[in-house]
């Protein structure tokens, strides 16, 4: 077991974990933050995307011990976050989700796009979204939602 100290959604957390425990399983099974979803566990689908020190990472292929000393933000930790509030509303209005399984990871990735690439056009948004799989929507609603937030943030 390895001791682990980190901040999750602003809360200080200390835990003793098996080194093989993934960050995703840590936030889900140990912290019961079940909004972080596992879709492939090999880093392709993006459902498990969380922020580590403000940057999106794959929590399924990041061991919890590698998150020692970091600040993690899961989908449950964005209540006071303006870009996320805008994205949630835009996803709702643009029918950017169906089954909802990819949605938390998609939102975290989308937040990265609108904050890191404030001028992204449709092609760029689609390119950046290649790391997040959605089996339901065909991406049209997701792309439109992100573009609408980019536009609002430019105004």
């Amino acid at each position: 077991m390895t001791e682990l100290t980190l901040k999750i959604n602003g809360e200080d957390v200390t835990a003793d974990v098996e080194p093989r425990l993934s960050l995703a399983d840590f936030v889900r099974d140990h912290r019961r933050l079940t909004g972080t979803h596992l879709g492939c566990e090999h880093g392709v689908c993006g459902a498990c995307t969380v922020l580590m020190n403000g940057e999106p990472v794959r929590s399924c292929i990041t061991f919890a011990v590698a998150a020692d000393g970091t600040e993690i933000t899961t989908i449950e930790g964005f209540d006071d976050d303006d870009p996320m509030t805008m994205l949630r509303q835009a996803f709702h209005e643009n029918h950017a989700l169906q089954c909802g399984y990819c949605t938390p990871g998609m939102l975290v990735a989308a937040r990265d796009i609108v904050t890191r690439l404030p001028d992204a056009d449709e092609d760029r948004v689609r390119l950046e979204l290649a790391g997040n799989l959605c089996r339901c929507t065909g991406y049209v609603g997701i792309v439109n939602a992100i573009l609408s937030v980019i536009e609002k943030r430019q105004a």
Partner: peptide, 21 residues
């Protein structure tokens, strides 16, 4: 009509089988 079920999914509060402990 916008979807009634969206909010829980957008909040990461959907409850799938693997979320039930």
């Amino acid at each position: 009509v916008l979807r009634k079920e969206d909010k829980r999914f957008l909040d990461g509060a959907g409850r799938y089988v693997s979320d039930i402990y």
